[in-house]
């Protein structure tokens, strides 16, 4: 399973997004606000989720802000960290 697909599944499970399926989450859809509708509390949970499931640490807001925009940006961030 590729990182994007796993991310979508993990997001649904860990953030209890019962009303969404992985197929309904677009790769370029904003995670926060208008898109998937996540909020600041989810951002904190998301940092934990990424570390727990992908072994990648998001150290601060400077690093986190661009990474947590969409599924694509987050997957790219995880991939880069795993390879680096």
């Amino acid at each position: 399973m590729d990182i994007k697909q796993k991310l979508k599944q993990v997001l649904i499970e860990e953030l209890n997004l019962e009303d969404v399926t992985p197929e309904e989450i677009g790769d370029e859809e904003p995670l926060f606000g208008e898109g998937l509708g996540l909020d600041s509390l989810d951002a904190v949970e998301l940092v934990v989720v990424v570390q727990k499931h992908f072994g990648v640490e998001i150290k601060d807001m400077e690093e986190g802000r661009p990474a947590l925009q969409t599924i694509s940006t987050l997957a790219a961030f995880i991939e880069a960290k795993q390879q680096g």
Partner: peptide, 10 residues
Amino acid sequence: DFGYACSSPT
């Protein structure tokens, strides 16, 4: 299981 850093805030 995952330590302080990965304890769920929720």
